[in-house]
Amino acid sequence: MPSSAEFRPSAPDAALTPQAHGLHQALLSLLEEGQPAAGGRLPSERQMMARFATTRITLREALAQLEAEGRIYRENRRGWFVSPPRLRYDLLACLPFREMVESQQRRAETTLLEAGEVPAPAVVARRLGLAQGAPVQRIVRARRIDGRPVLYVEHHLRPECFPGILAFDLAARSLTDLYRREYAIRVSRVGFELGSTVLGGRAAEALRAAPGSPAQRITRINHDQNGRAVDCDDEYWRHDAIELTLSAAPQSRD
């Protein structure tokens, strides 16, 4: 398992107090030595305070910096952990979650949190070209990599495109695969919206994170082979869990 320094760039820590900066560097050295290993739990805050002869305020300042750098993460009522290597998320590949994870020799799991028909919120209606309040199918799932909850995703589908889809096993089946096999719908074009955000209450709970924790938002709007917007989804990732990649041929310039 590579150390955190091998797959995650360092962020500047000029804003830290001198005490927190020194503690940050000491903790960073331990992480780079694999103590603990990726995915492992750090000692309790009380133990770290005693070990480094520091205050809780200084410790939390140093831990917050390491969290912002993506080197560690916190789970509610469980403590601090060393972040595993990031998943490479190739936007152009458009791979289903399980296929993307397993292609990188990782383990994927999905839990279905909600599935039903709801009135379309304004932003969903705009994306799908519907009237606000028109019925849409809403599917909410939480997804894990190697047992760690990292992704909360909300899907909204045009119901006329996918009649009966809510009856399928939506925890085990890929929506992309269901579209193709059961409805003869092939995603031919995808629009992306990317942004940094924080986890809201429900997403934070699903990912065992504190509300307000940093997150990466990826919104996708999928169009079928006829150019029709058939669904959209909002993915909320723990910010240290993925590395976005994109490969494209540059256009020639005069």
Rank of each mutant, 00 (worst) to 15 (best):
S3M: 10
A11T: 13
P12H: 12
D13N: 14
L16T: 00
Q19I: 10
H21S: 15
L23R: 02
Q25E: 15
A26F: 05
L27T: 05
L31E: 01
E32H: 12
E32Y: 12
S44L: 07
R51G: 03
T55Y: 08
A62T: 03
L63A: 05
A64I: 03
A68L: 10
R78G: 00
W80C: 02
P84W: 09
P85G: 07
Y89C: 04
L92D: 11
F97L: 06
R98P: 03
R98G: 04
V101F: 03
V101P: 00
L113F: 10
P121R: 07
A122I: 10
A122C: 10
V124C: 02
R126W: 08
L130W: 07
L130Q: 06
A131P: 01
A131T: 06
V136C: 03
D146L: 06
P149H: 08
L151I: 00
E160P: 02
L166S: 06
A167E: 13
F168K: 11
F168H: 15
D177G: 15
L178D: 05
A184G: 09
S188A: 15
R189C: 06
F192G: 04
L194T: 05
G200K: 07
E205F: 07
A206S: 06
R208V: 09
A210Q: 13
A210K: 14
A215L: 04
N222I: 06
N226K: 11
A229E: 00
D231Y: 04
D234N: 12
W237S: 00
R238S: 09
A248I: 13
A249M: 13
A249N: 12
D254P: 14
